[in-house]
Amino acid sequence: MPAADRMTVHGLTLSYFTGKLEAYLRAKGIPYRFAEMDTASFRRAGRATGVLQMPQIEMPDGRWLTDTTAIIARFEAEAEGPSMSPSDPATKFVSLLLEDYGDEWLWRPALHYRWSFPEDMTLMSSQIARTMMRDLKLPFWMKRQAILRRQRKVYLAEDGVTSETAPQIEALYLDTLDAMETVLAKRPFLMGERPVEADFGFFGSMFRHFSSDPTPAGIMRARAPHVALWVARLWAVSPREVAAARLPAEAPEDLAPIYAHIVSGYLPYLAANDRALAAGETYVSYEVQGIRWKVPVNPYRAHCLAVLCGHYENLDLAAREKVDRLLPGAAEVLSARCRSNVSEVTPSGDGRMVSRPLDRQWRGQNRQA
């Protein structure tokens, strides 16, 4: 395909969600051109979609796509190539839940390791100064310091990272590595022989953060070598290899440690965030394993909960019973959200191809690195 006929992925080579999207496009066999963003192209994409985040896809005809979860859903429905979504309804729901969890709940430890540790923060602030800020006529040291101050403020101080919460954040990374190592020592991908939404949801943090940044990468190599192998495998897998493997027929039970984190931590947080948004609050307070958190309300995650609830509500009784058996307690949040119908929000840049500005406050915080 001529380069002019390919979509353009605008992002950064160190970006969480850019890596996730690129891995999906490579495995699916969808050709694209990568364009490293600078501040001008970041603003240009924001003007096109109304949301300042990355990555964003620019189509050859000038239309745009954003939000990796919605992009994947759209391409799964419309694009040629091997399917990355299980056909069994219960299995597909679990894959989508894992994808959402990987995207949103591993975000904090990924940013904590990047911006809390001296070697990591020095390296990554330098890389962003050289890439994202390359079009600014400022001294390099000034760009690096501006990035460092901004990232630590937004992704640490404003996201509840303190001396009290940091051990829990780091424990989540270690627990996740241990759970993934157990299953990936037995099979190539999280749910079976073929990558699905769940793999790409976990890949964003594992690829561009945990396997790349010095501190978490050292931990991964020592503690979870099969996770490191899975990172390389998912980046390298070809559409032909994907098509030759079977989609998972059921959700594996050996992901139970991750299911437990979803039920005990992530879903209760989503419910609390949803209630706070509906009440017009600025912050949401919740508790995980005895640690009290207070973080800004996140409208996008209310949307995430609404989407998960919709998928759950559409399951037939037999499929719901399978999900409920794997994730005891999840139905309490998902069913309650369906019944209450609160915080019915529609995301800006939700994966639709758009050519007009939308709500610029959607994400609540820019998804960059």
Rank of each mutant, 00 (worst) to 15 (best):
A245D: 03
A319I: 07
P328N: 12
L267I: 04
P257G: 08
V342A: 12
I262G: 07
Q289P: 00
N366W: 03
A331I: 04
R320V: 08
A260K: 14
P268D: 10
P252H: 12
S348G: 12
L334G: 04
E287K: 13
E250N: 03
P357T: 12
R352N: 06
G290Q: 13
P252S: 14
S343Y: 00
L358Q: 15
E344K: 11
V288D: 11
H303A: 07
L270Y: 05
P347M: 12
Y269F: 15
D359T: 00
S348Y: 01
A249F: 02
Q368L: 14
Q368R: 02
R275F: 09
A260H: 11
E287I: 07
R339S: 10
L317E: 14
A302H: 01
S343H: 01
R325L: 10
A245E: 08
N366P: 04
L267N: 05
E253F: 05
K294H: 10
H261P: 00
W293I: 00
L317F: 05
R352S: 09
D350V: 00
E241T: 12
R339M: 10
P257F: 08
W293G: 00
D254E: 15
R320P: 10
G265N: 09
Y259G: 12
V354A: 08
W293P: 00
G280I: 13
A278W: 02
A245Q: 12
R325Y: 04
V295R: 11
Q368W: 06
R352M: 03
V297E: 02
R339H: 08
P347G: 04
S340P: 00
A249T: 15
Y283V: 05
V307H: 04
V307M: 07
V342I: 14
L315E: 08
V345D: 01
D350W: 03
V297G: 01
V354Q: 07
V242G: 02
H261Y: 01
P252M: 13
A260R: 15
L277M: 12
T346N: 06
Q365G: 00
A244I: 03
Y312V: 01
R337T: 12
R356D: 08
Y283M: 15
Q289L: 12
R320Q: 14
N273M: 09
N366A: 15
S264R: 15
I291E: 14
A331C: 06
A331L: 05
P299S: 05
G364C: 06
E250D: 10
E287R: 14
L327H: 10
P248I: 08
Y300G: 00
V342R: 14
L277K: 04
A245Y: 05
L308Q: 12
P257E: 09
P252K: 13
D324N: 15
L305G: 04
V345G: 00
D316L: 09
P357M: 08
A243I: 06
K294I: 06
W362S: 09
L315D: 06
A302T: 11
A256Q: 15
H311C: 04
L358E: 15
R325I: 01
P347E: 07
A279G: 14
D316G: 13
R320E: 11
R352D: 02
S264G: 15
A369N: 13
A243L: 10
A276Y: 03
G310N: 11
I291W: 05
A306I: 02
N298L: 11
R275M: 13
V295S: 01
L270S: 07
A306E: 02
I258G: 03
H261A: 11
E332N: 10
R320S: 12
R352F: 01
E321F: 02
